[in-house]
C-alpha cells in the first residue's frame, strides 16, 4: 500500500477485494488518492468498474475497505453528496430530456437552484441546456457528456468517471481531458478509468494500473510508461532475406534471440525495443535487405498489463 504525502487521502482502498461467487473481480487492492486527476488504467475485465463502483458505494467490498473522505460510501448516505459518478453503461432515463435528467440529479442533491445548476453543468460539457429532445435521441457522444453533466452538477469533491471518453470525437476528447484537468486543479479528486494507453498518456497524471483484478502498478504515468517500454518484446519481421537480417541484428546487439519462420519471416526477441526501433532500418539498408512488415506479436494492452503484473 502506498500513501501520498501531504493532505489526507480523499479516496482510500485498504486490501479491498470483491468477488462474485467464484469470480474474483478485485483482489486485495490498496491505494490512496488525493486531489488531481488519477487514471485507472487496465484492460477490459481488469476490475476497474468494480473498483469505481466500490468507491461510490454501489458495491460492497467482500473484504477490506474503501473509504471516501474518510467515510464508507456504502453505509453513509451523506457522503454520496460529495461524490459524482458517470457509470460506464450507456443507458439513461431515456424518457427525460437532457435538462430534466441533470436537473433531477441537482434536485436529489438538494441544490437550492437545481434548474440553474443543471443549465451550468450542461454548458460545461458543451451541450445545449435548452435542447428539449429526449435522451433516447442522443448520440453516444452526447450521452457521455450528459452523464458527465449529472456527475458534476452538485460540484462534488470526488468524481469517478468510468470510460468517459468512449464515443467522443478527438475534439471532444481533448475538451473533456481539459475539463478533467480543470476540475483536478480546483482541488477535486478526479478518477478516470480507461483501457486505452494513449488516452491515459494525455491525462498526464498519476496512474493506477489494474490487471486481473490486482493493482499491477501505480505512480506517475512516465514511470509506468518507461516500465512498459522496458519490457521484452517479440517482433515478427517479413523480409526478403530473413537470415541475413537476423544475423546483422544479433551482431548489433539489439535482439536477444531469433527464429526463422518460413522463407520470408524471422521472429526476433528484444529487451530494448527503443534501440531495436532505431537500429532495424539502418541495418536493413546497410545490408541491402528490404523490410516488408514489422509486427509486434505481444504489443496488445493485455500483454503489457500481464508484464506489469509480473514485475
Amino acid at each position: 500500500m502506498s500513501t501520498q504525502a501531504g493532505p489526507p487521502p480523499m479516496v482510500q482502498a485498504a486490501g479491498a477485494s470483491k468477488w462474485f461467487g467464484d469470480l474474483v473481480a478485485v483482489s486485495d487492492v490498496s491505494f490512496s488518492i488525493g486531489a488531481g486527476v488519477t487514471a485507472l488504467l487496465g484492460p477490459n475485465g481488469a476490475g476497474k468498474s468494480t473498483m469505481l463502483r466500490m468507491m461510490c458505494g454501489l458495491a460492497r467490498p467482500s473484504n477490506g475497505s474503501v473509504t471516501v473522505l474518510g467515510k464508507d460510501p456504502r453505509s453513509d448516505v451523506s457522503v454520496l453528496g460529495r461524490i459524482g459518478m458517470a457509470p460506464q453503461q450507456e443507458s439513461l432515463l431515456d424518457h427525460l430530456s437532457g435538462r430534466e435528467f441533470v436537473e433531477l440529479a441537482a434536485q436529489l442533491h438538494h441544490l437550492q437552484r437545481p434548474g440553474e445548476a443543471a443549465r451550468q453543468a450542461i454548458q460545461t460539457v458543451e451541450l445545449d441546456p435548452d435542447d428539449t429532445r429526449r435522451l433516447s435521441t442522443y448520440s453516444k457522444g452526447m450521452r457521455q457528456r450528459i452523464k458527465l453533466a449529472q456527475a458534476i452538477v452538485h460540484d462534488p469533491l470526488v468524481i469517478a468517471l468510468d470510460e468517459p471518453l468512449t464515443g467522443l470525437d478527438p475534439r471532444q476528447r481533448r475538451e473533456m481531458i481539459e475539463l478533467f484537468h480543470r476540475l483536478g486543479s480546483e482541488g477535486k479528486c478526479v478518477i478516470v478509468s480507461s483501457h486505452v494507453l494513449d488516452e491515459v498518456e494525455r491525462f498526464g497524471s498519476r496512474v493506477l494500473v489494474m490487471a486481473q483484478g490486482r493493482l499491477a502498478a501505480e505512480g506517475d504515468f512516465r514511470e509506468i510508461r518507461n516500465l512498459m517500454d522496458d519490457r521484452p518484446l517479440r517482433i515478427s519481421i517479413r523480409t526478403d532475406r530473413p537470415r541475413e537480417l537476423a544475423i546483422a541484428l544479433l551482431d548489433r546487439g539489439v535482439i536477444s534471440g531469433c527464429r526463422l519462420e518460413g522463407a520470408d519471416v524471422v521472429v526476433v526477441d528484444t529487451t530494448d525495443p527503443a534501440a531495436f526501433r532505431r537500429a532495424v532500418a539502418p541495418v536493413a539498408r546497410d545490408r541491402n535487405v528490404s523490410l516488408r512488415e514489422l509486427r509486434p506479436l505481444d504489443d496488445d494492452l493485455e500483454s503489457v498489463f500481464r508484464y506489469l503484473v509480473t514485475q
Binding site: 461510490c56 458505494g57 454501489l58 448516505v77 451523506s78 457522503v79 454520496l80 453528496g81 461524490i83 459518478m85 457509470p87 453503461q89 443507458s91 439513461l92 432515463l93 435528467f101 433531477l104 440529479a105 436529489l108 442533491h109 438538494h110 449529472q150
Partner: peptide, 15 residues
Amino acid sequence: EDRTLVYLWLRPVSR
C-alpha cells in the same frame, strides 16, 4: 433491468 437505478441511488436520499 435497464441499469438506470444508479441515477437515483447515487444521491444523498434515504432508500
